[in-house]
C-alpha cells in the first residue's frame, strides 16, 4: 500500500476490495506506519483505488478512527468512488469524520 507523510498528516492509498480478507491486513499496515510516527495527528484514507467495500471494510475504518482518537488525532476519507461513497453515507460514517467523494477533491 502506498502512503506519504506530509507534516502531521499521513495519507494512505489502499487498493482493491475492502472486505474481510483485506481489512485486517490494511489496518495492521496503517497502524505499523503510525506506530513509529507519533507526530502524525491526521489520517487521510484516499479511497480512489477502492472499488468495493462491505461491513468488514467499514469496521476496519472505524477501527482506524478509534486508533486516531486514542492519540487525540483525527481522520478523514477522501476521493471515494460513487458506489463506495454511497455505502459510507448509508453506514453513518459522515457522523464520525469528513467523507469526500471523487468529485470533491481537497
Amino acid at each position: 500500500m502506498e502512503w506519504e507523510v506530509t507534516r502531521d498528516t499521513l495519507t494512505v492509498y489502499p487498493n482493491g476490495d475492502l472486505d474481510m480478507a483485506t481489512a485486517g491486513v490494511m489496518k495492521e499496515e496503517i497502524e505499523t506506519i503510525l506506530y513509529s510516527r507519533l507526530g502524525v495527528k491526521t489520517l487521510v484514507v484516499n479511497l480512489n483505488r477502492i472499488r468495493f467495500i462491505d461491513s468488514s471494510g467499514l469496521g476496519m475504518l472505524i477501527g482506524c478512527y478509534k486508533y486516531m482518537q486514542g492519540r487525540s488525532g483525527g481522520m478523514m476519507l477522501v476521493e471515494a468512488s460513487k458506489n463506495v461513497y454511497r455505502i459510507l453515507e448509508f453506514s453513518g460514517m459522515k457522523k464520525l469524520m469528513p467523507v469526500l467523494c471523487e468529485e470533491q477533491r481537497r
Binding site: 461491513s55 468488514s56 467499514l58 477501527g63
Partner: peptide
C-alpha cells in the same frame, strides 16, 4: 467488538 453489526442490515436493505 471489531464488527459493526451491519451485515444483516445490508442484506435487508
Amino acid at each position: 467488538a471489531e464488527h459493526m453489526g451491519l451485515g444483516f442490515v445490508f442484506m435487508q436493505t
